[in-house]
């Protein structure tokens, strides 16, 4: 049986809501299952690409398919497979949600109204929180957590949910080292133990360099695609991140250093 590719874009172009072109002439194919990263600087169209294949934005031209399903015609089928972690600041903090409510959301969103949580849902949610070391805060109000803790809860929400594709939008930005490590480890373990694909948007590949199988380097179009070390090419990096980008080799892997590299970056 030839498996459908995880993602397949053909001549894709997407506009921002303000009419500016976010992505143009994007064509690529990623095999399934995979742990892939979409990287590129701010404003390079990474999040837009995610929104396009989730069917949240209509492509301006071309198509993108997830496991063979078209993002426009079959968005319902795609969304059944998806578990999504949006950028952390997209979560509204005015609602008095507890940690458990957020994590259970991942399970209840896949059910029909009135979406009652069964004891199985609660067990799976607790296990997911255990993975990111947050289960002790089960009853804690979500808005009172630190940024890194909130991000961990959101990752747990995705781990607790159902669906063969995890999509994470900048899950590591503005988080502390401890949270970063916990998230990366949990995702790696989950990917290896289950038959799921992970698609992660990040502007810093280094924390997940050794885990990802494929990298898509974007700057409004595809600049590079392939294994992490092949994308970490000095010429490619300079093209995307400017002349200050350096490639550092460490323990047999190539890492990219830019001026804004660092863990406690907040953008």
């Amino acid at each position: 049986m030839t498996a459908e590719p995880l993602l397949e874009a053909q001549n894709l172009a997407v506009r921002y809501p303000n009419g500016e072109m976010a992505l143009h002439d994007v064509s690529f194919k990623i095999k399934s299952p995979s742990f892939m990263a979409i990287i590129g600087p701010n404003g390079s169209g990474k999040s837009t690409l995610i929104k396009a294949f989730l069917g949240l934005i209509r492509p301006f031209r071309g198509t993108i398919k997830v496991n063979g399903f078209d993002s426009v015609k079959n968005s319902g089928k795609i969304r059944k497979m998806i578990r999504y972690v949006p950028q952390r600041d997209r979560i509204e903090l005015t609602v008095p949600m507890k940690v458990k409510d957020i994590v259970l959301m991942g399970r209840l969103l896949k059910k029909l109204p009135p979406r009652f949580a069964s004891s199985k849902d609660i067990k799976i949610s607790r296990d997911a929180l255990e993975q990111v070391d947050m289960v002790d805060l089960w009853n804690r109000p979500f808005p009172e957590l630190s940024g890194g803790q909130r991000q961990r809860v959101l990752v747990a929400r995705a781990l607790a949910s159902d669906g063969s594709i995890l999509v994470l939008d900048e899950p590591l930005s503005g988080t502390d080292v401890e949270s970063q490590d916990l998230i990366v480890e949990a995702l790696d373990k989950y990917h290896k133990e289950n038959d799921v694909s992970i698609i992660m948007v990040t502007h810093d590949l280094n924390p997940i360099h050794t885990l990802v199988e494929e990298v898509l380097l974007l700057k409004n179009t595809v600049i590079g695609i392939g294994e992490p070390c092949s994308v970490m090419d000095p010429e490619l990096m300079k093209k995307v991140y400017g002349p200050t980008a350096r490639i550092v080799e460490y323990a047999g892997h190539r890492y990219c250093m830019t001026r804004d590299s660092g863990i406690d970056r907040h953008d």
Binding site: L56, R79, R90, I91, E92, V95, L109, P114
Partner: peptide
């Protein structure tokens, strides 16, 4: 539908993406 109303308020994008 109180859960749905809460989810729409908390995370519209995520709710849509989850179907």
């Amino acid at each position: 539908f109180n859960k749905e109303f809460v989810y729409v308020s908390v995370d519209m994008e995520g709710s849509i993406a989850h179907g």
